[in-house]
Amino acid sequence: MPATSQHPETVNVLPLTRAELAQACELVRLAFATFIEAAEPGEFWNDRDYVHNRWNAPHSNWLKAEIDGRMVGVLCVSRWGSHAVVGPVAVHPQFWDRAIAKSLMTGCIEQLDAWGVSHAGLMTFPDSAKHIGLYQRFGFWPRSLIAILQHPVSAESGPTGVLKYGAPGSDAQALKNACAAITHAIAPGLDVTGEMDAVREQKLGTTLILVDEAAQPHAFAICHFGPHSEAGAGVFYVKFAAVASGPRAPSVFATLIAACNAAAVQASQETLTVGVNTARDGAYRWLIDEGFRTDILGISMHRGGAGYDHAQAWILDDWR
């Protein structure tokens, strides 16, 4: 029975433990399946995992909300250098409209402040005034759309000059430093090398790195595929990609997408999936012109400016 105003229920926000990961997975799946009215909620997102690999990554932090010892909500926040991404945020449907998400977001803000990040972002439903209003109360303000785009994988050959992070004989630290330099030049403090390590250490996919004529990295893509990743069945999923700024960025971006397609063929995947903020005009238009089709639309919400969402940023990411 819901608590009355005379007897309000106590919501405790605590760290999520390893023993609770399976329960958190089910809660996330049920919450999103119920909200979007999935025809078969029990089968929703059974082919992907947004919980275990993020919990195991040192740059991410999970919180749970409990009432009388029962888990009723979870939230993840990931640190990308001086930037952070919030999500997923999920509340058990039986406890909607009972301020659970508000309690989780209070804990989230405490974590963001402890990290001292200059910018944080999240993705939510663009047609949900309730969700947008919730996040606005915590200083997140809506800006442009986020498009999750898909394209069938083709049998075209891939480009040369592609390295794989963690491959035998490669200098992993040097490659990490080079990728961090690319993102830092686009947005000061942006560092997604934790995602690179998570993919390598947990065997979630691969990180592709393009090098220029001088053998210097100038683009990279952190990619998931397989049953324990965030990709989904038959999907080669680019979680984050970036191209060094400059006049060659559009052509390098095209080469990077070609490299992802070739890697998807090698991994026997059928669909290439990417996310892009529509404020990154060059990257978004290029993908549309090349036949990528929108699967999901979300809205970006920002705390501390617009981050790296501008026309000169040739970046792909997905804040789900």
Results as ranks from 00 to 15, higher is better:
142 P>Q: 09
215 A>Y: 00
76 C>Y: 01
313 A>Y: 10
84 A>E: 06
56 N>Q: 11
88 P>S: 10
115 W>T: 05
293 R>T: 15
43 E>K: 14
181 A>R: 12
1 M>A: 03
293 R>A: 14
252 V>G: 06
104 L>F: 03
62 W>G: 02
62 W>A: 12
99 A>T: 08
295 D>Q: 15
6 Q>E: 12
45 W>S: 13
41 P>V: 00
309 D>P: 00
43 E>H: 10
164 K>F: 03
226 G>L: 05
200 R>S: 13
205 G>I: 06
125 F>G: 02
1 M>G: 10
94 Q>N: 12
145 L>F: 14
19 A>N: 07
265 V>R: 15
220 F>L: 10
41 P>W: 03
285 R>N: 13
209 I>W: 02
280 R>F: 06
165 Y>P: 09
215 A>Q: 15
52 H>G: 00
233 A>Q: 13
162 V>P: 04
114 A>F: 00
310 H>L: 05
249 A>E: 02
296 I>S: 09
21 L>T: 04
149 L>I: 11
171 D>P: 02
289 D>Y: 02
308 Y>L: 10
217 P>D: 07
188 P>M: 03
85 V>I: 12
73 G>E: 04
24 A>M: 01
162 V>D: 02
59 H>K: 00
173 Q>P: 00
192 V>D: 03
189 G>T: 06
280 R>W: 09
110 E>H: 04
295 D>R: 14
295 D>C: 08
187 A>L: 09
260 C>K: 11
157 S>H: 06
127 D>R: 03
13 V>F: 04
